[in-house]
Amino acid sequence: MTLLKTPLNKTHIESGARMVPFAGWDMPVQYSGIIEEVKAVRNACGLFDVSHMGRIDIQGSAASDFLNKTLSVDVNKLKPNRAKYGVICNIDGGIIDDCIVYKFDSDHFLLVPNASNKTIVIDWLNQHKPKSNVSMIDITTQHAMIALQGPKGMQTLNDQVQSDMSLLKMFNFTQEAFCGTDVMIARTGYTGEDGVELFVPESKAAHVWNILVDSGAKPCGLGSRDLLRLEAGLLLHGNDMNTKINPFEAGLEKFVNCDKDDYLAGPALRKIRSEGPEKKLVGFYVDGNRAARPGYTINHGATQVGYITSGTYSPTLNRNIALGYVLTELIDNNKNLKCDIRGQFTDIVITKLPFYSR
């Protein structure tokens, strides 16, 4: 299969990035090294190519009603130039994907789903899109999406724009000229650090990227991005949630409005809310030197009571961390939980999420 290439593909290769296939794209997994890149983001600022993420432009007089029917959030309550994180659930309440929706006005939105789920999301939306008064266009390849993340990110960005981007509130976005290039800048990210995501015209992507690198931002790959999001307790669809998992199990209920009129997943989610989930996603500290990996079982005595969904060594915390599902009844009485790490039963302790926050 021929891999898709982001507008920055040539730049990555010329800069020596290690490239790997990811969700049908040729993507950089690392530049200088995952741990070095993590430290750069935590202490200064890093730069990520996230152009593989989907971008779906949704317009029309019925756009708000359409999205309220299919998304977990209430877009009518969202003000223009603001964004909101949410999930897309099927009629049984299972999570098709998580996403961010950006509202330009009541008739115009941008939906950003995960790269691996974009086609599935578009198919689901098309099944429920009204025949008139809503248009839906995949504009993924028209723009690059660049994430500038870290405590020095805003200072780095401010050197290139007229406005003070530190005044832009979280999950707000604006249009700005970046060295003569019109870009959309959103105060969003997936690292647990302050930062922004820039939506840049395809033809200007390398220009913007190189300016930020020359200004001190460290190029980073998907490997460090995954580690950073796990330290921040952020979920990854396909690992920590899927169509067999509902938002109440995944701990995402605060991003769900079950009571919206005509919400497709509303009846199922209201039932789940009433009954309560049998299992829940929690964070774990893992003893010892070996990481708990996805699929490893969680045991209480001789009984399996859960499983790991994400796990790794955290260089920021200098210890092994993991996310996983465990029976709800054991969350408050979680002594003697163990993870089967390749035949060795290792002590794990439930801890409050996120593992790391600035």
Rank of each mutant, 00 (worst) to 15 (best):
Q30G: 13
T243C: 13
N76A: 14
S166A: 00
C339Q: 01
L71T: 07
K84D: 08
T303K: 13
I120C: 13
I100Y: 14
S215N: 10
R225S: 03
D74R: 08
S166E: 03
I272G: 03
G276C: 02
Q142K: 15
R187G: 02
K254D: 10
G301Q: 07
V208Q: 03
A291N: 10
S132K: 11
I58H: 01
D107A: 14
T119S: 15
I120L: 15
L3R: 00
K271Y: 11
G238C: 07
Y263P: 02
T188N: 03
I298P: 06
P267E: 04
L330G: 00
A147M: 09
E37M: 01
P294A: 12
I331S: 00
K103W: 03
H108K: 01
L327H: 15
G288R: 05
I245N: 07
K77Y: 12
K279R: 15
I91C: 13
A44Q: 11
D107E: 15
S274R: 12
E14P: 05
M53L: 14
D347C: 08
T243F: 13
S51E: 04
N114S: 14
G24N: 03
G276A: 04
D107V: 08
H300Y: 15
C45S: 01
R270L: 07
F109G: 01
I298V: 09
A186H: 07
A268W: 03
R18Q: 15
A268P: 05
I13Y: 03
M184T: 00
A250I: 10
S310Y: 07
I341D: 02
T2C: 00
N43V: 11
G94D: 01
